[in-house]
Design a protein around this nucleic acid. Structure first.
Lengths: 232, 232
DNA sequence: CAGTGGTCTAGACCACAGC
DNA sequence: CTGTGGTCTAGACCACTGC
């Protein structure tokens, strides 16, 4: 078949929802009536409904029926790669420092560790077309298999730094995005001479037990980066 | 049953992928062998696999098999509501201007219209705890059913402004997030006396034919807002 | 050709809502 | 009690892949 029955069901119900014929909270026809309506078996109807559920259009209440879901209005999908954004791409990286440090109070709290634990510090500068565009600082708890050779550290994204010791699938990540004025040190590193704001992206990595294993702070020149999001 | 068979299948395969026993590109056991392994019918096995597909863990190639998907490392989910962020909440709004304007070249290009078309301009100030925190500008193409009463415009989010003329489901939205220094006008509006950066969020609304129907630019005080994202 | 996934059926039993 | 959705089976036919 060119158009499977279950997709026809999905499209029809989507049209009714998008066309406001069905409003959030409204009940969908029961599965048995949809079977009759489309001359299909119940498994086929249910396959269509399962797709609508997974796409967030409807939800089911056992014993009651299927209902139109209220859409999540404020949800966006953002693709963030510290070395690549929608406008530019980092083409050179300079390793400023690799060190073992003792965390201060704030960092220890962020990483949920005590202040006597060692933390790996990595500071780098990102370049595009020969000009420095971002100042990047990473704090990592040491894990087995982590790269300790400078050549490996230099070009690795945050996720890559821990990927030897952790399967990427198990990695949970959080972003925090904010705006800030550069301090004197960052102004020097990024060749900022006049008034220019920074876009700062904090990245936090968690293992599969939701314990933090790393914190990254990337300070981008405000004229260099834009983050984009799409509703969905 | 407390644990349906198909969920058991899903969990087992997820464990194998997270535990690096199965790597991206590897083939999953064929559906018929999974049937034997779990003593289940093919439909039950397929229900489990369908869940893994929808969650991005695996993909299918007809005639060949099911394979482990390479995870999307850079995808984050961001919740953005112009009036509510993870730290603060807008509790007062001041309407500065509602007007009909002719777009300049840049705006006409953004909205994909000619320069002789009318555009509704709305300028507002957002307050939290009595202090101005954001300067908000919206450009809207007029649609039937749009609110024209100031009281309605004053407190509406961007999506709400068009929701009377368009079902929310059909609305597609794009975000663009960047950092910028305030100009003199914005400094006055937001009571900025010393060096403070802005976080600017541009929101673009599209109808179901992917034509732009509105552009919103919200300038937040950098010390007011943080946007958060979660991997997924 | 045999093996794979994609679609579909016509039943079955269960737990739960609501009367 | 009937009607609802949730799970599951044991088949079937199809299109595609690779030998």
């Amino acid at each position: 078949m060119i158009n499977p029955v279950y997709l026809k069901i999905v499209e029809d119900i989507k049209k009714k929802i998008n066309g406001a014929e069905l409003k959030p909270g409204d009940a969908i026809s029961s599965e048995t009536s949809l079977c009759k309506e489309y001359g299909a078996s119940r498994m086929t109807v249910r396959k269509g409904l399962a797709i609508l559920v997974s796409e967030g259009y409807i939800y089911s209440i056992p014993g009651k029926g299927n209902f139109v879901q209220k859409p999540e209005q404020d949800k966006y999908i953002v693709h963030y790669d510290e070395m690549n954004n929608s406008i530019n791409r980092v083409d050179k990286i300079k390793l400023l420092e690799v060190n073992i440090i003792m965390p201060d109070e704030k960092l220890a709290a962020e990483l949920q560790i005590t202040r006597n634990k060692n933390v790996i510090l990595i500071r780098r500068l990102f370049y595009t077309d020969g000009a420095p565009v971002a100042y990047d600082v990473k704090y990592l708890l040491y894990q087995k298999g982590m790269p300790i050779v400078e050549k490996e550290i230099e070009h690795a994204t945050f996720a890559e730094m821990v990927s030897n010791s952790m399967p990427i699938y198990a990695l949970k990540k959080e972003l925090s995005i904010y705006s800030r004025m550069p301090n004197e040190e960052i102004k020097r590193y990024l060749n900022i001479y006049d008034e220019l704001a920074l876009l700062v992206v904090e990245q936090k990595l968690f293992n599969n037990e939701s314990k933090p294993i790393g914190l990254g702070v990337t300070h981008y020149r405000g004229d260099y980066i834009r983050l984009r999001g799409i509703s969905g």
